[in-house]
Simulated scan of single mutants.
Amino acid sequence: MSDTAAALKAILLEKSVRTGTFTLASGAQSDLYIDCRVTALDPFGANLIGKLGWAAVREKIKAEGLQIASIGGMTLGADPISLAVGMTSAVENPDEALQVFVVRKEPKGHGRGKQIEGNFAEGQTVIVVDDVITTGGSTLKAIDVIEREGGKVAFALVLVDREEGGRQAIEARGIPVVALYSRSTLLD
């Protein structure tokens, strides 16, 4: 594990990982709760997410010869991760910088009634982001919105895969998942 990955893991374990009995967004009970927002909204955590996320994204883009326009996902969990990766891409590789967008849970009730805000346009190939995947439900909802708005999702970037079927559900839709950590690697 790189120094960057180890440093981010330490922050995640300190700030975001809790054990006990919890009800997850899916309604399932779990002995583990991971609130990545606390880490992603920490300036040190965000910086590390940007570095590690951009390295993983760039490796996938290069390996597959992808042309990616932007990165984003369902608000709120994906927002700081997407922005951190986008900002790091702009600093490290300005010619390959990723624009950032946000997928609202519901279309805006006023103005243009958009469900995707920010730097997204029909026809773009994008990366969908999520902080934690359990069942994959929120990631799949974001994918549905992106596709309905004319985007093509190249792959998903997730901070933590809880290893509870979410990766398989997303990949069953033909969308590969790049996870920075899994439950196993985070809690080893």
Rank of each mutant, 00 (worst) to 15 (best):
N119T: 12
Q99K: 15
A97G: 04
P107D: 11
G111T: 05
K114Q: 15
Q115M: 02
S70A: 15
S89G: 09
I116F: 07
I71D: 12
R112F: 08
G77H: 05
V91H: 10
V100D: 10
S82Y: 02
M87N: 15
G77E: 11
S70V: 06
S89V: 02
D95P: 03
L98N: 09
S82Q: 06
E92Y: 00
I71T: 05
S82P: 05
L83I: 13
V103C: 09
P94C: 01
T75L: 11
M87E: 15
A97V: 02
F101G: 10
E117H: 01
G118L: 02
G111F: 00
A97D: 02
E106R: 12
K114I: 05
K108F: 09
L76F: 13
V91M: 13
A97Y: 00
E92C: 02
H110K: 04
R112E: 13
A90Q: 10
F101N: 12
G72L: 08
K108D: 10
G77V: 06
E106S: 11
E96I: 01
G86R: 00
D79C: 02
I116N: 09
P107R: 10
I71Y: 05
H110E: 02
I81W: 09
E96W: 03
T88A: 13
S70Y: 02
Q115A: 01
A69I: 08
A69S: 15
T75V: 12
R112D: 12
N93K: 08
R104I: 00
L83M: 14
L83W: 07
I71K: 00
D79W: 08
T75F: 05
S89D: 11
N119S: 15
Q115H: 08
G77F: 00
K114W: 06
V85Q: 10
A69W: 00
L83R: 09
G77K: 04
E106Q: 15
G118I: 01
M87I: 13
R104Y: 10
N93L: 07
V85H: 08
V103Q: 10
V103P: 03
E106K: 15
V103E: 13
A84Q: 10
G113F: 00
A84H: 02
G111W: 08
A97T: 00
T88M: 13
A97W: 01
V103D: 12
R112Q: 14
T75S: 14
F101I: 08
G72H: 07
